[in-house]
Design a protein around this nucleic acid. Sequence first.
DNA 1: CACCGTTACGGTATCCGTAAGGATT
DNA 2: AATCCTTACGGATACCGTAACGGTG
Lengths: 306, 306
Amino acid sequence: MTLQQLRFLREVVRHGFNITEAAKALCTSQPGISKQLRLLEQELGVELFERDHGRIAELSKPGVTILAIAERMLMDANSLKGAARDFSAEMNGNLVVATTHTQARYALPEVLKRFAVRHPRVSVELRQGTTRQVSRLVTSGDADIAIATDASAYFKDLVVIPCHSWDRIVITVPGHPLLKLKRLTLEHLVRYPIIAYDHEFAARQLLVQAFESHHLTPNIVLSALDADVIKACVAMDLGVSVLTRLSFDPRRDRNLRALDASKLFASSVTFIGVRRNSFLRSYMYDFIETFSPQLNRRAIEEAMAR
Amino acid sequence: MTLQQLRFLREVVRHGFNITEAAKALCTSQPGISKQLRLLEQELGVELFERDHGRIAELSKPGVTILAIAERMLMDANSLKGAARDFSAEMNGNLVVATTHTQARYALPEVLKRFAVRHPRVSVELRQGTTRQVSRLVTSGDADIAIATDASAYFKDLVVIPCHSWDRIVITVPGHPLLKLKRLTLEHLVRYPIIAYDHEFAARQLLVQAFESHHLTPNIVLSALDADVIKACVAMDLGVSVLTRLSFDPRRDRNLRALDASKLFASSVTFIGVRRNSFLRSYMYDFIETFSPQLNRRAIEEAMAR
DNA sequence: CACCGTTACGGTATCCGTAAGGATT
DNA sequence: AATCCTTACGGATACCGTAACGGTG
């Protein structure tokens, strides 16, 4: 059994059980992969794939179990190399951050700027997606750090560390009737069409739940995938929306108004998520600390050890 | 980086940083190991060992981190092979159970007998030790299953599953004054010399704590490592002792008397511990179920997933 | 001198790439 | 015909064991 063989196994599965594709991705030959996988099967005494007329169709039952273990091993192999590079004081490397639009658009730019000053030789890659996609990117090893809001339920397999807490606000066009109220309530809010995040986002669930707990049904006229789109639609007076204060900048968003809604909705919490048992290179700790200064290396290590 | 190289690394550390010994243990040549370790260091760009005049003295700082990851990988490699053998329906294999004397002596013989009937081709090995040793045997991968009592605190790194609950009893010689009491209390008990388990055992701590919570100090005249020794000493009237009901068999222990002490001491709980993320072969599930029938495969898998 | 780790060297086995074959859609 | 996996084959490489070397206590 070789790490190489496990790598081949993983790659073939990732490429839809197509050895040819996997070979291309790994810059090697198809026959090589084919042979090594046969050898692995022979050594283990188990068929890893369900073969359909000579073609690989899917993983066999043992294959599923074995792949899961193999993937952990390959992740560890990665961690090991990363640890070595970290100790050899190589300050270059790359960092893949999986996050949602809101964070990428409003919170991260400043963080990335400060981080780039400290680690000019680390190349950072942002991957955007829904809360669920963000979680899976880190779980699968395609990203190092997940950042998302109200995501602890989605981050079940990850170590989650709460970072920031954001009040919620209601945004409207200037001159909207809601702005004239002394005290905003859900009963007022429910009378107006609402623009919300897509179902895929945790924020959407929380919005609906808040209304439902008051036996109200919001009239959601539009679902969108990011705050910028939502704001543009609110500006067109298609409805009002509920966002976090993070997403609203009074200087830039002059065509909109924000109303405090911290009493109506639970404040939302931004989490950082990392794989348990993964070795974080020192610049990854630095990134997390830059994002959330109260999280120093020790605090993160403690959270991971639990 | 090869699994072989990691195996070499682990074995050299296990044999007190002696390549020669490691080579013997692995049935290979010293120069082979030496070379592979040098290659590994070269590839990783890190010195794994602190070398003292050409001799390996200990792990370097990076070595510590890297070894930890390597050991996880090697355990997974083992799991992987085990999983394969399990699926290929080979019913032979071996099972190493790390446990304390009490379990090995009183609870396990019957379990082993029933297990042997179901799995005649599985060779079982019992390893005995203190609670801490038991825990480490499983953590290090030298044993598959840990069984111990009141051990959850020691089993921090393991998945623990509670199995049985045992009332505590006080044992004395026949005709002892304590036997004449209507209602036994700690205040009565503290007047007599007590024979207890060694400090290394959780039972010892719990005994002392129970007294201390009543502001009493027990007069422990003797510490012993197992219940048989304790019972022999009680039979000699060196003192009385507190055991679990498991350790007392009225038919065999005719030279002793037992008093219910379930009101004085918390009942003790027997735990099974396994490594998180380790693949258990089907006969291991069967063993656990034989030991504790309410633990079927699903229950165990759920406990491990948490 | 005994012990330990490294270097040197040669044979074997392994791995990989090219080429060709067989099967399916 | 195109795609895909496997078998066959040859060359380069890596790995391992024996032997010899350099240091240390």
